[in-house]
Amino acid sequence: MEEAPQTPDAELVARTQAGDPEAFDELVVRYSPRLYGLVYHMTSNHEDTNDLLQDVFAKAFRSIKGFQGKSSFYTWMHSIAVNMSINFLKKRGRRLTMSLDDVDAGVQNDAEFIEATTGSDPSHAANLRELQQRLNEAMQKLSHEHRAVVTMFDIQGMPHAEIAKILGISEGTIRSRLFYAHRQLQNSLEEFIKR
């Protein structure tokens, strides 16, 4: 049985602007998993992510009357999420509270995970928790702006052009930030990768 075609974002936005809150609920359902990933990888904390994501959708709902459709709703929502996450991180300062208990069990069957954790020498296999911890620590060492670019490109798989639109900067700047961030991450993860 075929699934019903998804209502376009633009239509849901128009209905929300006309005063239909259920249309916005549908946008929340549609965008929360993806935006959760974005905010979580910026903050590395599930509780902070939950609160922040609630604020992101609340802000979007309050501002949606002013959304004129010059960019896609996808870009607009991501811009709000990134800007609010960066502001939050600036306020939070260097306090780092990681919550690493909710990892999906599927990672243990992932070929890349197996390869990354065993490498050429099985005696150096690292456990899942350590790998996550290393990754999060390495990410937290990046500046907020670099972390945002790495999250969107490397973790969420967005193209350069989309990230450039969301952040309002050129694709060249995105590439430059990625190059710098990758170099920093390599330095941070060097010992882990060598094992």
Binding site: D25, V28, V29, S32, P33, Y36, G37, Y40, H41, H46, N50, L53, Q54, F57, A58, L100, D102, V103, D104, G106, V107, D110, E112, F113, E115, A116, L131, Q132, L135, M139, V150, D154, I155, Q156, H182, L185, Q186, L189, E190, I193
Partner: peptide
């Protein structure tokens, strides 16, 4: 080294909240 860094970063996709989280999220939002 670069390939490994990218692969390691891609593994972070698996860090997800519990499955019923998003249903509760909408309820909490309302």
């Amino acid at each position: 080294k670069e390939i490994n860094t990218s692969k390691l970063l891609r593994l972070k996709r698996y860090e997800q909240p519990p499955p019923d989280y998003f249903e509760d999220f909408l309820f909490e939002f309302r």
